[in-house]
Amino acid sequence: MKEIEKSKMYFAASVLAFLAFIFMLAAILYALGPDATPPSTESPGKVIFDACVKIIPPMVTLIIGFYFGASQTGLRTNHDGRSVAPPNTISTD
Rank of each mutant, 00 (worst) to 15 (best):
K2L: 06
K2S: 14
K2G: 13
I4T: 11
E5K: 08
E5W: 07
E5C: 07
E5S: 11
K6A: 09
S7I: 12
S7D: 05
K8H: 01
K8D: 02
Y10W: 05
F11W: 10
F11N: 13
A12R: 02
A12T: 03
A12Q: 01
A12M: 06
A13V: 05
S14P: 00
S14W: 01
V15I: 14
V15Y: 02
V15M: 13
L16D: 04
A17W: 03
F18A: 13
L19R: 02
L19M: 12
F21Y: 14
F21V: 08
F21C: 13
I22E: 09
I22P: 02
F23A: 15
F23C: 11
F23M: 15
L25C: 15
A27H: 08
I28M: 11
I28P: 05
I28C: 11
I28T: 11
L29P: 03
Y30N: 15
A31Q: 07
A31H: 04
A31C: 05
G33N: 06
P34E: 13
D35W: 02
D35N: 12
D35L: 13
A36L: 04
A36S: 15
T37R: 02
T37N: 02
P38S: 09
P38N: 04
P39Y: 00
S40K: 10
S40G: 04
S40H: 07
T41V: 14
T41N: 10
E42C: 07
E42P: 01
S43F: 01
S43C: 06
S43A: 15
P44F: 05
P44H: 04
P44R: 01
G45P: 07
G45N: 06
G45C: 05
K46T: 06
K46R: 10
K46M: 09
V47N: 05
I48V: 15
F49L: 15
D50V: 07
A51C: 06
C52P: 00
C52Y: 12
C52D: 07
C52G: 10
C52S: 12
C52T: 08
V53N: 09
V53K: 14
K54I: 14
I55H: 02
P57Q: 01
P57D: 04
P57N: 01
P58L: 07
P58S: 04
P58E: 03
P58Q: 02
M59Y: 01
M59I: 15
M59P: 05
V60K: 02
T61L: 11
T61D: 02
L62K: 08
L62C: 13
L62P: 00
I64L: 15
I64G: 01
G65M: 02
F66L: 13
G69K: 00
S71P: 00
G74M: 07
L75N: 10
R76C: 12
T77F: 14
N78Y: 01
N78P: 01
H79N: 13
H79Y: 14
D80E: 08
D80L: 08
D80W: 03
G81I: 04
G81E: 00
G81K: 01
R82G: 11
S83K: 05
V84L: 10
V84R: 00
V84C: 09
V84E: 13
A85Q: 09
P86S: 08
P87L: 14
P87S: 12
P87N: 13
P87E: 15
N88M: 09
N88W: 02
T89K: 09
T89F: 11
I90C: 10
I90N: 13
I90F: 11
I90E: 09
S91E: 12
S91Q: 11
T92K: 10
T92N: 12
D93W: 03
D93T: 12
D93S: 14
